[in-house]
Design a protein around this nucleic acid. Sequence first.
DNA 1: TTGTAAGCGTTATCAA
DNA 2: TTGATAACGCTTACAA
Lengths: 342, 342
Amino acid sequence: MGEMRLKTNGPVTLSDVAARAGVSIKTVSRVVNREANVSSATRERVEAVLSDLDYRPNIFARSLAGSRSYLLSLLFDNPNASYVHDLQLGALRQCRAVGYHLIVEEMDSGAADFEQQVARLLQGSLTDGLILTPPLSDNALLLAALAARGLPCVRIAPYTAGEVGTAILIDDAAAAAELTTHLLDLGHRRIGFIEGPSGHGATRLRYDGFASALRARGLAPEPDLVVTGDFTSRSGMEAGERLLARPDRPTAIFASNDDMALGAMLTASRLGLHIPEDLSVAGFDDSRTALLTWPQLTTVRQPVTDMSAAAARVLISREPMPRRIMFDLEVVVRGSTGVARG
Amino acid sequence: MGEMRLKTNGPVTLSDVAARAGVSIKTVSRVVNREANVSSATRERVEAVLSDLDYRPNIFARSLAGSRSYLLSLLFDNPNASYVHDLQLGALRQCRAVGYHLIVEEMDSGAADFEQQVARLLQGSLTDGLILTPPLSDNALLLAALAARGLPCVRIAPYTAGEVGTAILIDDAAAAAELTTHLLDLGHRRIGFIEGPSGHGATRLRYDGFASALRARGLAPEPDLVVTGDFTSRSGMEAGERLLARPDRPTAIFASNDDMALGAMLTASRLGLHIPEDLSVAGFDDSRTALLTWPQLTTVRQPVTDMSAAAARVLISREPMPRRIMFDLEVVVRGSTGVARG
DNA sequence: TTGTAAGCGTTATCAA
DNA sequence: TTGATAACGCTTACAA
C-alpha cells in the first residue's frame, strides 16, 4: 500500500496522537508535559485525542531522551519486616499518585563485599533518587558514593547529621523522654531499658531520652537495668530474661522498639508475671506488633508511611532539596503500662 | 577540532568501547550479550576494553530498542508484612543475580476501583513479567487482563488451577493433614481450627487437609470448633476467645497461619492456660512469628523465598513457562504442641 | 565472522 | 505559538 501505513495495534505513541490531532509531535509532547506556549485551542484539541486514544508515555523512551527516569529506589537492610513494609507503602503510594514506580533493593551492609554492592547499585543506576532506610541512612560509605555521583537521596531517620541529601527526622530523644516520664508518673522508679544494636541511629537517641527523663527527676539510669537487643522479638525475650531474673527486678520495662517489647512480654508471661499489674511494658514505633499483644502496647507512634511518602515527594519534585524535614512523634498510652505496685 | 570529539565523561557507551577496541558497535553488542559468531580473538579484545572502561548497558536504551525491560514486578495485597517481605526477598535476590530489578506494586483488590488499578498498571506496563502473590494469584479480573495482553505471570500459591501463567504450588492440604495427624498422635480429639478468610486460596486447602486427617481416624470436624480469622494476630486472639470460652474447650488449636496462632496463644496465656500442658497450638508458614512465641510454634514450613526466587527465574528465562512448579512443605514440631491432658 | 543502517518513542535544539 | 530534526544508546534486520 505504499506510504499508507495503518497502525493496527501496539501502544499509542506521540506520532499517533499528532497525526490524529493534526499537529507535530512536539506540540503533543508540550501538552503531555504541561509546558507553556501552546494555544488553548490546540491544547484542548490535543487533550481530547490524548484521552480518546488513551495515550501513555513510554517510560523508556522518556528516560533515554530526557533526564529523568520516573523511577525511585528504596534501599533497605533491616531485619524488621513490618517497618520496611510500612516504609515501602508510603513511598509506593506517593509514587503511584504521580506516575512513578518504586524499585526496591536489598543491601547487606555487614557483608565484606558491601563496597562492591554499592558500586554495582550505582553503576547501573537508573533511578531519579534513592530513599535510604535505617541503618543505611547513616552508612558513610554509601553516602560518600552517592555524593560523588551527585545522586539525590533522602535519609530516613538518620542519627548523624551529615551533609548529603535530605534528612527525614523524628525527635526520638524527646519521645523517649516523654514515655519515660509517663512511667515515672505511674510511680515506677526501677525501670529496665532494652536498647537497640549499637550500629543503629535510633539506639543512642532513645537511650538519651530515657536517661534525661530520669535525671530530670533526680534519678539516674542503673547500668544493670540497661540491656542490649537487636530489635528482634527474640532478643527482647532474652533481654527480658536478664532483667526479670534479678531478685530486685524492675517494675517497668521500656524497650527501644515494639518487637523487643513483645519479646519481654512473652518472657514476663512465661514467668507468671501479669501485665500491667506486676510489670509495665512499653515499646517504640507503634508497629503492628503493638496491637498483637495483650494488653496492647504503650508505645511511641512514628509516622512511618508519612515519612517515606515525604521522602518520595522530595525526590520527585526536583526542586532544591531541604536539609531536613521534621516529623512529630506521639506517645500512645495503652493497657501495657499501669501504676507501679506497692 | 572538527571530527575529533573526545568524550570527557558521562557513562561509557557501546561506541566508546567499539572505538577503543577497533570494532563496530554491533560486535561489542554481540560480546555483551554473549551471542555466537564472534571470533575468540575479537571477543577477548572487546572483553578487555569492556572491563577496562567498566561498561554498563543503559537499561532504557535496551528496553526501548529491544523486547525486554530487565524489570520484573511483584504485586501484593496482603496484610502480612513478613510474608510479603520474604516473598520480595526471594525475587529480589534472584533478580539481582542476573542484572534485573524488581518493581513492587501494591494493589487493593477489595477497592471499588480495582479494575482501574489493573488498567493503570498494565497500560504503563514496563516489566517483562509479573509475580502475583496471594490473594492476587487467584484474582480472576487481574488474570484475565494479564492474559488479554499476553503478559507473562507467575502465580504464587494459587488456589484455583487456572489457565494463566505458571503456578508455584505447595501442597497445603497434605501438610495440613500431616500436622493434624501429629496432633491426633498426641492424643488430641477435640481440635479447634482457625481458618483464613474465604477469599484466600490457602484457606480451603488447609481446612480440607485438616478435615481429611480427622476422617482418616474416623473423626469429623465439629462445626463449633471451626472459626474464621483474617490471617492477622488480632483475629487469632478473637478466634481463640471464641474457642476457649466454651465449657468443653478444645485441647488443641490449629491455626491456618502463624500470626493467628500467636493470637490464640496470647488469648490462652491471658486465660491462664499453659502451653502445651493445657493447650497445644500449631500454626502454618514458619514465619518469623513462629520463633517469637514461647514455647516456639509447631508449624509448617513453606519455602517462601525459594518459591518467589523460582517465580523470578521462570519469568527471566523467557523459555516456555511450565504450567506448575511444586514445592515441598515440612512439618516443624516445636514446643507449642504436646501430649493431650488426661 | 563482521559491519551498516534503520528504527524504538521520547526530549531538546533551534529555526520558522 | 509551532514544527523539523537531531540526539539518546541500544537491538534487530540485512549485507558484506
